[in-house]
Design a protein around this nucleic acid. Structure first.
Lengths: 222, 222, 222, 222
DNA sequence: AATGAATGAGGCTTCATTCAT
DNA sequence: CATGAATGAAGCCTCATTCAT
């Protein structure tokens, strides 16, 4: 075994512990909130000693930041792949809404942190710019721009405004789910209603959009 | 001066101090966030002694809760009045969007708290149910229902879903403004784009909605 | 009404309020203990304003000291009268034991304070010497000395030691009663056993003491 | 060094620190009284950080309770051994009185706490039952019962009453010593007078008791 | 690298005391 | 004299972080 592989092994071992702490922190932050969460509780949940946390993270803030980065990396990558395979901006936007809500559903802890602590964090960590999140939002803006270029969406609509509006709409909806731990309507219905509302809302020509939306269904059924 | 007026004066004085603390807390919570805010800082900002806070509030949590209640009371009342004078659900929804964003603009500290701490609060104050906020959201749901009954909005759309989606869209937008303290587009544009998007999105018949939207403009110009 | 009578009236009014506070403090100190008792609670119980307390007492410590002084004054006076009418030291000692326990019984709050706070007080109020209490103890020492002079009690016994021993015996017994709020034996039995034990214990000649003890009974029956 | 000895060493270290805090608390509580004592002062006296206290004790109350438990454990054990070696109840009672006073003498801080704070404690720690102390008192009751069975003490005397009376007598005496920090008579004299008083007081036949008391002296001189 | 006992700064809260009315 | 709202000093306790092992 050469030095490199030794290093690699150590890295693996480290990475494994690093992620174990991230996972634990996700659960604890979701359960208690950032300020109520104790480092020692994260340590216990990760089955490491308190001090070990500080071999992998600068401080408590750094755990939260790293957690965002790591989780958003996966989320972003996943959403990119989901959207990449589709042609029409209409389908892409529909897919985005559905995937986002599903993601929240499957990853409630992370969702809760994004919704609750992400906001806190931008206050207490003034220096921290959540670039992953910005890129996530820009996925929407890119879809809108593409739709505008194809003449599907109104030119006058500001993509940077829509990206926040759509994200906000989805986020508020899921916030309600996450915190109330029950819901009146299922994910597919919610995603459909939200994306339809935005699609018709953005539509340059509602008939064309309607056809696109229907078209997708038909293609899917075929 | 009779007993009653003496009592009234004292009450006024008390109320005045109570609101001075609320105001101070609003600024401090907005500046630091709930957990970073120190009670002594609120006291200093309100120009009272630390102990005085506890003559008006149970504890730090209670300051936050009272702050919500008081501010939401005003916000809710104001929005009800704004919306009450209008006939068409279309106009109401437009007004709601515009007023909400203006409110945020004029009351950044409160907005920041609603957006950041309101979410925290539902975690750390498990028992606290923000009824005022629920009523605020229901203003939107009521508008949507009215629109559906008039045949303006699609019957299939769920008002309880839309209320969250619209609020979320507006909130996320203003969050960006509040936190970044600058913006690319003005309030009127943002409100118009959001409300138009939702109105066309909800429209049973886009032509009729279009007419309503135009109609309002015309009435306003007259 | 001349100045003097006005003064007298004021003094009366004052005295009345002064004692009302003393009474209230007795109840509150007994209920909570000195440190747990709040001045505002005493004020409430005395139906005066918090600030009024400080028109009659220097500070919280002073309330406790005054309370001792006033209550001990009564207790001391009462016990002096009880003992004065009796001839034999034997009877006097018996009477002392019985009266002390009855006093405790009828005045549980005061008893609790004497037993619990009196001890505290000698610590935190280093300067305070409880002279009334010393005189109370000396009632016993005087009885013992008289008994020694009459040849009833052993000359070798130290009166200053016995006074503490007897008081301690009675006090510990009543402490148990006061704190446990129930007892296995009645006051008369307890007083009799304690005084008998001490009388026989002090006796120069147990026969003579026995006769004295019996004698008293007979005189009483006559 | 194997795991076990490492563990043992750590335990020793911990135990050592635990007792260092107990010792420090004993001094500080004796000096200031429970309520005047500051946790930080105990920490300083124990040469640990403030927070360290809370690794070994729940809170300030728990320090006092633990202190009682630990010290009474030793006192009780010691007194049991002292009394166990003796045959006659007379000697046992004499020994109890002497040992108790010597114990107080050698352990003034602890004595002060028992006398002052033990009483407080039964108020502020309603739930806490000082079982060790009850057992300590029962040592006396057991001696009295034994004496009654041997026909030395009057059958009519209630052991549960005597145990409190004797303890009270000794305690009040030593309280005076502890608080006044000087005394008119030495421990042996005091112990002798108290125990003699109680022994003659309890005696079924004063001659027999007298012989017992003398007998012990003679045996001791032999 | 891992541990977890120890640290100690700092905040929320209480409450005796004051003083303007 | 009486009031009671206001004061602000002070202490218990928490918990992020360190460091000797």
């Amino acid at each position: 075994m050469n030095d490199h592989s030794l290093f690699a092994m150590k890295q693996n071992k480290n990475k494994e512990k690093y992620f174990r702490i991230i996972q634990a922190a996700t659960r604890v932050f979701a359960r208690r909130g950032f300020y109520q969460a104790k480092v020692s509780e994260i340590a216990r949940e990760a089955k490491v000693a308190d001090g070990t946390i500080y071999l992998y993270f600068e401080n408590k803030d750094d755990i939260l930041i790293s957690l965002f980065e790591e989780q958003m990396k996966v989320v972003l990558q996943n959403m990119r792949e989901q959207v990449a395979g589709l042609e029409s901006p209409v389908q892409k936007l529909e897919r985005f809404a559905l995937c986002h809500l599903r993601l929240i559903e499957q990853n409630k802890d992370m969702a809760e942190i994004i919704q609750v602590e992400l906001r806190q964090s931008s206050k207490f960590m003034k220096s921290y710019k959540n670039e992953q999140f910005a890129e996530y939002l820009d996925l929407i803006a890119d879809i809108v721009r593409a739709g505008q270029q194809e003449g599907l969406f109104k030119k006058a609509i500001l993509p940077d405004l829509v990206k926040r509006a759509l994200f906000g709409a989805l986020d508020e909806l899921s916030r309600y789910w996450v915190l109330s731990s029950h819901r009146k309507y299922d994910i597919e219905t919610a995603a459909k209603q939200i994306s339809d509302t935005f699609l018709y809302g953005l539509a340059a020509d509602s008939g064309k959009i309607s056809a696109e939306i229907q078209g997708k269904r038909e293609r899917r059924l075929r």
